[in-house]
Design a protein around this nucleic acid. Structure first.
Lengths: 224, 224
DNA sequence: TGTTGTGAAGGCGTTCACAGCC
DNA sequence: GGCTGTGAACGCCTTCACAACA
């Protein structure tokens, strides 16, 4: 787990590591003890050189002529990604999306515990959600500190998102996952990730439109 | 709307265009008639050169020494992204996430109509959701064709996702938005976008872990 | 022999900087 | 004068290709 060399790790590398981990999670129960960069590459849709290069930023986890030990590599990647500990998540916005995210069990399985849920609607405040109670924004800072929030998830309407982000920052949260379709401004020491479903749909529309423009009717033979 | 030059447009360009569009959508009601690449850049968190370069792939929409006409540029980008028409979406999976996505009004506002919802659970099939009925997978192909589905949204558990993707492909759908945390294999003529919340959380964990490793305690002064 | 780890090459997107034009 | 549009420079990530080595 050599991170102290302090080479800059690209975002794409980190995201792929997450993909390798998921693949290893599958291989383990399948009884595979050894995996090659080639096999991992096929499972995750990248090249084998990419797999090796990504891993090489953090150390040498394989054996030449042999491959990688599944369990060992899995452990290493979990360590690299910071998954050998659990993380506390605060969810802001308990509407449709927020509730769905809260109910998403896989988060807990992967080490992320939603330990606080906030909303500003009187209709929702005070209601139970799972084993929590939906809290008013007035208790935001207090509860964020009390429950040692590591990550804030913004699942509010777009208009409220920036304000929520600022509250998160003030409360000392240094990682934000934003589902609101709006660019958030946060200090540089805060890491922000956006999940913007509108962007995804619009990029699909672009792709559809382009291929129609190009193909001019007849589809060509399918190729996987 | 010059697309026929057939230069390859990068994914990042398309995603940024979507961001510019959102910014223009805000500027319009604010009564701004003209916007500079600089202003657009600030609103979307990129450089002004980037804005100009992105747009230049599709034509010359501005006036030198002046800027871009908000309404006009908005119209152009909508055209480029394929948003001057509406798109039919099929949602597969009516669980927590699927229902939340269905309830997300912004999709309709932006031109995407969910016109079919499928699930394989007898508990859900037949129930109303909005003005639709949740349909069984057995009617998948029939309804996809009947309702001219353009985009399929996969909101099933991971284990079902690949199978659903194949059904979508067989039904002639050429764009897939995948929310299941699993790599999907689709033919090359099908465009796939992934929204993987686990990857996002894990990349946040990586960032938190790295900054802790580096900073060794004391936070430095905030800088936005 | 087979697969890793990695310097070097290559490709692609971003940024620069300025010519072009209103 | 000011801002766009764009070729050229830059930098970063990916791919190549092979030395290292179990």
């Amino acid at each position: 787990m050599v991170l102290d060399r302090m080479v800059r790790i690209s975002d794409s590398t980190v995201r792929r590591l997450s993909g390798y981990l998921r693949a290893l999670d599958e291989l383990d129960p399948e009884g595979e003890a050894i995996v090659s960069s080639q096999a991992l590459a096929e499972r995750t849709g990248v090249t084998s050189a990419q797999v090796r290069k990504d891993l090489s930023h953090f150390g040498s986890f394989g054996r030449r002529g042999f491959g990688y030990e599944v369990a060992g590599l899995r452990r290493e990647i979990r360590g690299i990604l910071g998954l050998s500990r659990r993380w506390n998540v605060a969810l802001v916005g308990a509407g449709n999306l927020g509730s769905a995210l809260f109910a998403y069990k896989e988060f807990r399985e992967r080490g992320f515990d939603v330990v606080a849920v906030f909303d500003n609607s009187p209709d929702r405040i005070g209601h139970r959600i799972g084993d929590l109670v939906i809290e008013p924004m007035s208790r935001f800072r207090e509860l964020c500190e009390e429950r040692h929030i590591d990550i804030g998830v913004v699942a509010t309407p777009a208009r409220a998102a920036q304000e929520v982000a600022e509250l998160l920052v003030e409360a000392g949260v240094r990682a934000v996952l934003n589902f609101a379709p709006r660019k958030l401004l946060v200090p540089r020491h805060v890491t922000l990730r956006d999940v913007n479903m509108e962007v995804e749909l619009e990029s699909l529309a672009f792709a559809l439109r382009s291929s129609e423009t190009r193909a001019g009717g007849r589809r060509r033979v399918e190729e996987w």
